[in-house]
Design a protein around this nucleic acid. Sequence first.
DNA 1: TACGCGTGGAG
DNA 2: TCTCCAAGCGT
Length: 347
Amino acid sequence: MRDVADPSDLLDWYDHNARALPWRVGPRARADGVRPDPYRVWLSEIMLQQTTVAAVKSYYEVFTARWPTVSDLAAARDEDVMAAWAGLGYYARARNLLKCARVVAEEHGGVFPADLDALRALPGVGPYTAAAVGAIAFDLPATVVDGNVERVMSRLHDEHTPLPAAKPILTGYAEALTPDGRTGDYAQAVMDLGATICSPRNPACGLCPWRRACAAWEAGTQAELPKKTPKKRKPTRLGIVYLARRVDGAWLLERRPDRGLLGGMLGWPGSEWGEAPQEAPPIRAEWKEVAGEARHTFTHFHLRLKVMTALVPMERQPDVGDFVEQAEFSPADLPTVMRKAFDLARG
DNA sequence: TACGCGTGGAG
DNA sequence: TCTCCAAGCGT
């Protein structure tokens, strides 16, 4: 006979196995009354959306060192925040991060609201992030449902309905299991379990505190859960980018519009990206094609970029973009696809 | 509901 | 090289 999953068993496991993370107040310190800074919890949760812990760590350190409070961040220049986010991906998060910081600074007195509805109303804060900040920062009664929780619940209940249709079902399971107290520790415990034990591939069921309650373990189906609806395969698009260097070393760059792909980020001027891109030099010059191509894969398409370079005289004015002084330009400020084009051009 | 939206690492 | 995927959100 299978046991019923007990939240206490998971909390006991978490007390001994919690990962040490830069943004986390561990279970022992939390028991001693230490409370996490809601700003840091929120910042980390935004960064962690669809992004690995390993990728987030260095960005988190840079942001918290440069902007220690939400009011500091609210006062930052847009271009500085976008540059600091460059390489982390999903740039709408950075734009909403700034919007949110400014709303908190101006409408909430620089203090994150300890209220689930108020959190949910903030830019870039959806159901998951509101629950995570509410539980972790304030121990509010909230259930986090992220990819980890979906996986754990689908296995615990041997739920074969494919995602995303299964989401409401799995959410119901997760809510039914959430304890009344220690909601912050519990939220982090389920996610740690999913990240370290109940992993997508080769789950370590032998170490799982909920093994005796797990329907998938009993049925031997854990490796095939959660079920997902098949994704479409990615088409390939072509494009041309133009790297113009002025004789004084300045680079010709353009700020991309706030909406859409790479919105708000710096980039090289170029053609549209499609099946047969048309030449679109941003300034009159003798353009030379760089050997090879820059390849990059986005969420929903592959891109192959032809890279053109030219040296232009001081007086010549660009039709598109603006020259950025050499001292003010760092390739690290570019989104990865644009940095790849830069790397290719520089050899 | 379905799609657009990045990137780097694992296998 | 290729597929999957990692603490989702906005539209």
